[in-house]
Design a protein around this nucleic acid. Sequence first.
DNA 1: TTCAGTATCGAGAAGCATTCGCATTAATAT
DNA 2: ATATTAATGCGAATGCTTCTCGATACTGAA
Lengths: 149, 149
Amino acid sequence: MTETDRRVAVFETQLKGAGLRMTQQRRLILRVLAEADDHPDAKGIFTRAFAHDPTLSLSTVYRTMKVLESQGAIERHAFEDGISRYEHAHQEHHDHLIDIDSGEVIEFSSDAIEELQRRIAAELGYELVRHRLELYGRKKQPARKGSRK
Amino acid sequence: MTETDRRVAVFETQLKGAGLRMTQQRRLILRVLAEADDHPDAKGIFTRAFAHDPTLSLSTVYRTMKVLESQGAIERHAFEDGISRYEHAHQEHHDHLIDIDSGEVIEFSSDAIEELQRRIAAELGYELVRHRLELYGRKKQPARKGSRK
DNA sequence: TTCAGTATCGAGAAGCATTCGCATTAATAT
DNA sequence: ATATTAATGCGAATGCTTCTCGATACTGAA
């Protein structure tokens, strides 16, 4: 709760600095995102927020996501299906592993991969600005006696 | 020309085997793709093919891309903008580096990265099925005397 | 507190890439 | 040749996202 409040307060300050306003809707959406531990899409965010404020509109969710993103408060990702999914911004960069069967999104980071990417870009004559890495996998059965294959 | 004809012939055999038909439209679209050295989207493919057959419809392009993809004749990629782009299938797996300024797509492959990804997935308890890696970069100025920064 | 100015909102229309439905056409096997 | 039916063309429909616009409600100043 306190952590969420802190996020809201920080964001409000950022908004004011940009000549923007803190509204009930933005507060609510920010709260929903701060308390989400998954990567919901616009509709998912809308559904959760709508439960707290039935006057909220989907348009506002989309608009708010843009504002939040431009302020660096959240990150937007588009995986295979092309639908935008959101998560509150971490300080540490990370990539995603998506469970093919369940759709679950697991986060990970690897300095080795980051470095390798930078090197590959450099070899091609490019300066790496950003990247997108998604692994799609299937949960392994824990190895156990008698497990076949 | 010969290489393109060979591709068309191979694909026709695959189609027959699946109880499907080789049509003028499929031949044309396959030809356009075989001779493309970039990663066009559906509209781009349609435009090029339309020049040879003004009766072609965009629906057919989309339908054909699905067939081609299911037969493994082409690969589909969706970069940042969410639009599907296509290329004829290579035998070797590769990833893409996208030039931020020009939009140009450069292909590359790295066994080291492939291996690293497999290892990361394994550490998270997953078997890697496939992945998506896109690097976004900016062309470096060739280092020269007097270059600042 | 009240008020003016304007950023934001809700609701629905509009955009865009992609897919569908269906009557018509054409590829294939006999 | 001819029947079978996959494939086509065209327009309508879909689904996510953005835009339009009149109404609403933040915010700073009085």
